[in-house]
Design a protein around this nucleic acid. Structure first.
Lengths: 183, 183
DNA sequence: AATAAAATGTAGCACTCGCTACATCTGAAG
DNA sequence: CTTCAGATGTAGCGAGTGCTACATTTTATT
């Protein structure tokens, strides 16, 4: 593994823990046991580093989805998806995506492009998982926009305290709706 | 209107246009025809100013919802809600909320508290609108978590190009699901 | 008009930011 | 061993940050 790749792994870990918003090179470099100078040497600029981190985070999260054992039904699959969303690895990746997305809201680069690409990869992974749970491919594709939006919305609204009765019922309602739409 | 209130209105306008992330006092003050010194004098600190701006934005958006003529059915109401979401005033308020929410994801104050309060006010406004569209109060309350999450998710995913076929179908699916759940 | 209080302007402090110039070190090829 | 390119350390630049000290002007009250 090249030095750049090593640093990318560590930088992604750091960003997943500390967030993208307000990220600055010097504290990150210190935590990684290197210097801002080296990060810029290997990545070219802060923007390029941020893009690489977003890409790596997207890669990791879709890998999680690919390795997730399919559920018996689409309804169960959606419930499982939400469980995974609130669980360590994916939770942080989702945070990172949401931060990047919010940062790109007004069209600011590099977030806008990075987020769009990330979103496409994620949508494909979602479709694959739903089909593995028994949905037709067209049905899965049809329902992914709603599913993705609702999952992200739940995650953003209840991000910290992911354990309210309202939330649980909301997720159940979502699972039912998605199930019905893929029949 | 006190000087503070005048400045708050202008500051909110500015934040709605330029975003919360990376907001800094001096450019904002210059655009408002005042100085960072004065903003800090009237609001005490940047954090306090940001909180005030979030509150004002929340007030404006729930006012939009309160003044929105009810639709004939819940389904039509949801479609109307999405239209309003992509339309000038509310669109920007939603952007601001999403930026604040993303900033508070890891628990950072003052965003965390401000966002929670904003979210509660918004949920109440949503319930009121749904009931005005013919939903029962319990039905509306039940479905608001899913509705709010999905609307925000759509907004975040398709924030810039709010005109794709996928998105339109997603919104229609959401409207159907919400309609069914409030019957 | 005198006085207190609120509002504003000026200047700057201490700090962080991304980034760069330049020197140095390391390790493999010739 | 020499050479030379890639990797790293040191130091610092110029700009921007939130915020403050202090003086001054404006406004309202007695």
């Amino acid at each position: 593994m090249s030095r750049r790749d090593e640093l990318l792994q560590q930088a992604t870990d750091y960003a997943l823990e500390h967030g993208l918003i307000g990220l600055s090179l010097r504290p990150m470099a210190a935590a990684l046991g290197t210097s801002d100078r080296m990060l810029l040497y290997h990545f070219g600029s802060k923007d390029a580093l941020v893009i690489a981190v977003i890409d790596e985070s997207t890669r990791r999260s879709s890998e999680v989805l690919r390795d997730l054992p399919p559920a018996q039904t689409v309804r169960a699959g959606v419930l499982r998806l939400w469980e995974v969303h609130t669980d360590g690895q994916l939770d942080r990746c989702q945070h990172l995506y949401e931060q990047a997305s919010a940062s790109g809201l007004l069209g600011d680069e590099p977030y806008r492009s990075a987020v769009r690409q990330s979103n496409e990869i994620w949508a494909v992974a979602l479709v694959d998982y739903l089909t593995a749970c028994g949905a037709t491919r067209t049905g899965a594709r049809r329902v992914v926009p709603l599913l993705d939006a609702a999952l992200m919305g739940f995650h953003l609204d209840y991000g910290i305290e992911a354990d309210s009765a309202d939330l649980r019922r909301g997720v159940r309602d979502l699972a039912d709706a998605v199930h019905r739409l893929t029949e």
